[in-house]
Nucleic acid binder design. Structure first.
Lengths: 229, 229
DNA sequence: CAATTTGGTAACAATAAAGTAACAAAAAAG
DNA sequence: CTTTTTTGTTACTTTATTGTTACCAAATTG
């Protein structure tokens, strides 16, 4: 299967190089030469991965990253020329999947891209997901907690699936809203996500008041505990 | 009789191999190289079994699986690339449906296909099906409840047969509608299924208000209690 | 530390799905 | 052609889920 990758990079040389590298690996590549264009393209199409340069004309790269994360669950690799720790931290704090400093070796870049995409593939191919005492059968849409079958409503299951697809990563309530309910914006959508997270926790958490599986990161979103491999 | 098998697999190498293996066993094989194509073919033709790769371009394999189940009762074998580690599956019911991990031995694959088809055959060959106090004579189309002969109308019997063919699995009302009445969509079809489930329950359930045999799963469909073998 | 934002909680209203009964239309039987 | 059975349709009740609201607690901001 061919993965679709979006490159957001203003420097034509680098953009062209990245495009060539990725095409060579068999990926389907689209290039945006500005943050605005990137955001637009990401809205119009469904990509599997975004490669984003931090330094862009117009909107800043971090802002672009935040906006994308705000409304979707797509993984992002951030490119930066600065080697500074501050950048690394702020980049990863947003929830970027990976961070690469320029200049980087072509091989390393390809490896990182491959690693992220193969993990997505891995999750897709699992028939069962195990996290602690939680067991999810993705084929039968059944959830077990410590061997006991738990009955989730369609919406609750959909919410859990969304969290599973990016387990270990923070997902904003906007992204959850879009994935589960299909709305980009909706008055009361925030409450909807909140209440349904509560409902899910009530069913799958041993102690819903001290969640072990569905964790919250203040101001960012929710994160499902990492999947055991 | 020759069984018809649909393979949904995008990688030509694997698809070709599966096709060869199954043809060699005397099955009639059709290959779809994408989820969309697979769904289309399944609509147009009647297959006995579907072999589905979870990882597909375009629509995801799980989505394809759910869509197919939404409107039919056909058994599906899922191909996945799960790692070897999990022994978790043993606790769960696989039943008529199965998954197989890549890479797999050709012999194993053929065996699993054979097992599912022979189970269908088994049900077909079986002159009697027993579930609790319920006894169904498939040759004479007679149903007994605790020794008492029960008279089912043709539609009721057809509905029961459909449930039997996938006993233990949830079947959506859309799938029942298609199997029993032959309609893909029909204004009022939902009510039709509902009322006929009620009629069946009235006849075969000891207490129709607390069904033991024909169970409902909210938002998903109906499930017949597992057959005793 | 007050004001504001974000998250957790419970309770209630609205909605959608499933169960029920009754009746008319259609088909089969006599 | 009448009677009986089956089938399709409808209206209504019950139940589960979903959406909304209000209120409280914790974290952040200034």
């Amino acid at each position: 299967m061919q993965h679709k990758i979006l490159i957001i990079e203003d420097e034509p040389d680098i953009a062209g190089m990245l495009e060539y590298l990725l095409r060579d690996e068999g990926y389907e590549v689209t290039v945006a030469y500005s943050g605005e264009e990137g955001l637009q393209l990401n809205k119009e199409q469904e990509f599997h991965l975004i490669v984003l340069d931090l330094f862009l004309p117009g909107i800043d790269g971090l802002t672009v990253c935040n906006r994308i994360k705000q409304s979707s669950t797509i993984p992002i690799i951030i490119l930066s020329a600065r080697d500074k720790d501050s950048d690394v931290i702020s980049g990863l704090e947003i929830g970027a999947e990976d961070y690469i400093t320029k200049p980087f070796s072509h091989r390393e870049f390809i490896l990182r891209v491959g690693k992220i995409l193969s993990r997505m593939k891995w999750i897709n191919r699992q028939s069962e997901i195990k996290i602690g005492d939680l067991l999810i059968n993705l084929e039968k849409d059944e959830v077990y907690m410590g061997g006991e079958r738990i009955n989730l409503t369609p919406n609750e299951y959909s919410l859990l699936s969304c969290l599973i697809s990016r387990a270990g990563w923070v997902i904003s309530w906007q992204a959850l809203l879009k994935d589960v309910w299909g709305y980009d914006e909706w008055e009361g959508g925030r409450e909807m996500v909140k209440v349904n997270i509560q409902r899910l926790r009530k069913k799958i958490e041993p102690d819903p008041h001290r969640p072990e599986y569905i964790l919250n990161e203040w101001g960012k979103g929710y994160r499902l505990r990492k999947i055991e491999e």
